[in-house]
Nucleic acid binder design. Structure first.
Lengths: 244, 244
DNA sequence: CTTTGACCGGAATGATGAAATTGGTCATCT
DNA sequence: AGATGACCAATTTCATCATTCCGGTCAAAG
């Protein structure tokens, strides 16, 4: 009972309309996700308690259970929101880039969007133990589906002449995995001072992708590539159960 | 006392010459290293005891201490021997390959030599927990020195026109690290059936290196490159305290 | 109705100590 | 002398129990 907290919005209208209530609820949900994200970055999954999140968000513990079934769903929601934001940002960057349809530009925009997001950046920078005890919660089907989405769009990019045809999708998928995991673990492995800056690294990786995957003669039309990649991002996003 | 064992060579000459004794000792040392290697692969560092090794090698436990100071030195020796063998093999493959001086050929030979070695292959295939409780025993200076060796020879290869000049050594070092760690962790991550075969993977990686690092116009003379790489391997080997 | 935090029980954590294991030594045997 | 394995001390492992912690519930408050 003796828990003074700032109820800044003291119900200006005595009877809030249904819309206003909806909005209130929405805002609170975001606030809780903000709190979860902050603490996820600061303490990791295992060491962050529901109580912590509730306190950080300024709500009661029970309230959180009005929004999510359990702890994993809450943190999944936080990660999914981050992913959705990142994909959305990447989509925008790609749309704004005249050459956004090219493989290496696409990679660059994706990587930059990730690094701009505090949560995903932290993961990328090698603090993979944020997920202590959380990995394995994700359904195996999700991983398989992600691979399917990759395969489908990679093939489309090949058919559009944006990626070399003489490379197998399975190999490409595996090596993309190698690059992603390698980036994370190498960041964890090497000490700060010897690690190149992320700008340098992004640029170098972008060039690697370009030389590795792009054919010498690229199609003059960039819209097809953009469309494919846009579609890709949308499907990745639709795989993420995050309601705006 | 009741420990019957096969003393096949029952000292044909009553007084073995100094040479023969030396040889005997040498052979026994190899046998112990063989045992250590086998058990390292089967059980990992932590779960392999000195007793196990002695039994597997058919010698008394005390005998092992006539050869090495302690447990870590024994297993270091086993790993170092493996590394020396691998570098030696790689050197031979490179020497036999007319194009052995090219970056992507060099990478291929190195990777194949590693995969041919049971111990290092096991590590490469993601069973990095072979080292449970062993990592950290290696002096930090070794890592730093390895980086120096890389840097020096990479620059030499650039000067020889075998590797593009417009890429920084620091970046290249980091990305090589990404590739190595990525290969290990991706192998650990993805399940058998979805993983491409090592032949496919080696070939694909070789091509990636080629496109990423090699200039369009390569020097006609291959001997310079071979010499540099030979030198590289020798220095890596000399960093390893393994006496034939 | 919505929101809350006291409360509950299962699970993680830590302290304790007995028992087993194991790296390394050394008296003994060859 | 060179090789060995019984032996020792130190560490690890395991079982036990007390205590704390925390995800989730729900009766009560607003």
């Amino acid at each position: 009972m003796p828990t003074p907290r700032d109820h800044t919005a003291q119900s200006a209208t005595s009877t809030p309309s249904a819309d206003e209530e909806k909005n209130e609820r929405q805002l609170r949900q975001e606030r809780i996700l903000d709190a979860a994200t902050t603490l996820l970055i600061r303490w990791g999954y295992r060491k962050t308690t529901i109580d912590d999140v509730a306190r950080e968000a300024g709500v009661g513990k029970g309230t959180i259970y009005l929004h999510w079934k359990d702890k994993t769903e809450l943190f999944q929601a936080a990660i999914w929101r981050a992913s959705a934001q990142v994909t959305e940002e990447a989509k925008a960057s790609i749309a704004a880039d005249p050459q956004g349809g090219l493989a290496h530009r696409f990679w660059t925009h994706g990587m930059m969007a990730i690094l701009r997001n505090p949560l995903l950046a932290k993961i990328m920078q090698g603090n993979s133990d944020i997920f202590q005890g959380f990995i394995g919660t994700l359904p195996q089907s999700t991983v398989a589906e992600a691979k399917e989405i990759f395969t489908r769009h990679f093939s489309q990019l090949q058919q559009a002449g944006l990626i070399r045809n003489d490379i197998s999708v399975a190999i490409a998928y595996h090596i993309f995995g190698v690059l992603k995991l390698g980036l994370i673990h190498m960041a964890e492995f090497s000490d700060q001072e010897n690690t190149p800056s992320y700008e340098e690294l992004t640029e170098a990786m972008s060039e690697l992708i370009q030389r590795w995957l792009e054919p010498v003669h690229l199609p003059t039309d960039s819209t097809t590539g953009k469309a494919i990649i846009n579609d890709w991002m949308d499907q990745v996003n639709s795989q993420i159960p995050y309601n705006p």
